[in-house]
């Protein structure tokens, strides 16, 4: 109904605005889409044709070799499973840590607010480097456990500050005051007023943390020794490196390996990103929250 009302009111200026806007977005979409499309056709084309510049609009000498090679490996599937577990746990813990902390930091009445801010800002700039980090993880007994991958990832200060800002600007103060007058305590306010109003930011944070963990491999590479615990990205990286390695091979083997490596590059992008991309629309659902704030306010 609202839509029709707007449609009726479109002036000529609005129409021009919509057209220009749509045009630029379309252009942008094309610039984004072609390389994505290219990855797909490159992943099923003869790698020599890809490197030789023959693959432009459609796959050349179609081969599913790359996908076969990836899919037939049990470690890829195990990697998937590990990544899903790590990602799920990271998201749950990260939200439990970040959202309340973000809310607390967004309150002017937080005791020692400035100190806390400085406390969180310092690690954004100063780090001790890998060796002390490793030794701390070792003293905490986390080496070669999945927690070494999960725990350091459950708080990103950058994300924390984004959450804080979101709370500061998007939660109407009046609502909080009203809840206070109704006699609600801080925890009550947080769980029954703040959280329902913040689905958008929670969804974004879930997305950022999930994708951060999904794409990461560095901590796993350093802290995990059992290959059975490797996340997908590390497994794929190892496969890629293995196929590029040239130790001891003769000319023909090296050549075959190069071809495979070039094919696998594109295949691995698809294999590793498709599942997350499919999840994105679910996250988007929570972005249409504006209506609710309005209704709550009335």
């Amino acid at each position: 109904m609202k839509k029709r009302k707007n449609a009726l009111r479109d002036t000529l200026g609005d129409k021009i605005f919509y057209i220009i806007n749509g045009f630029f977005l379309l252009l942008l979409a094309l610039i984004i889409l072609y390389p994505l499309y290219f990855i797909i056709i490159a992943s099923i084309s003869d790698p020599d044709a890809v490197l030789g510049g023959e693959v432009v609009l459609y796959p050349v000498r179609v081969t599913l070799e790359g996908f076969q090679k990836i899919m037939e490996r049990s470690d890829v599937w195990r990697g998937y499973l590990n990544t899903i577990i790590y990602t799920a746990l990271t998201v749950v813990l990260a939200l439990a840590v970040t959202v309340p902390a973000g809310w607390a930091l967004s309150r002017k009445t937080l005791p020692g607010k400035k100190l806390f801010m400085i406390y969180f800002i310092i690690p954004m700039f100063f780090g001790g480097g890998l060796i002390p980090f490793y030794n701390v993880m070792s003293s905490l007994g986390l080496i070669n456990t999945m927690w070494a991958v999960i725990l350091p990832a459950i708080l990103s200060v950058w994300n924390l500050f984004m959450t804080k800002t979101f709370f500061e600007s998007s939660i109407p103060n009046g609502l909080i005051e009203a809840a206070k007058i109704d006699g609600a305590g801080q925890f009550r306010i947080f769980t029954s007023v703040v959280i329902p109003l913040s689905k958008a930011v929670i969804a974004v944070m879930a997305l950022y943390y999930a994708v951060g963990q999904w794409n990461s491999y560095f901590n796993a590479m350093i802290f995990l020794q059992d290959e059975s615990k490797y996340p997908l990205q590390l497994v794929l990286k190892e496969i890629l490196i293995a196929s590029e390695s040239t130790v001891g091979g003769s000319g023909e083997t090296i050549l075959q390996q190069f071809r495979m490596a070039n094919l696998l590059k594109y295949v691995s992008v698809i294999v590793s990103s498709l599942p997350v991309l499919c999840l994105y629309p679910f996250v988007q659902k929570y972005f249409a929250q504006g209506v609710m704030i309005g209704s709550l306010k009335e």
């Binding site: 840590v97 809310w103 309150r107 937080l110 969180f120 690690p123 480097g129 980090f133 701390v136």
Partner: peptide, 28 residues
């Protein structure tokens, strides 16, 4: 406002463990 301190505590702890404990490395 004390509940805010409880809300912020987990984040403080995580940062302490994984960022502040190894920070002595800057001395390198």
């Amino acid at each position: 406002n004390a509940p805010f301190l409880i809300m912020i505590f987990p984040a403080v702890l995580v940062v302490f463990l994984f960022n502040y404990l190894p920070i002595y490395g800057v001395l390198i």
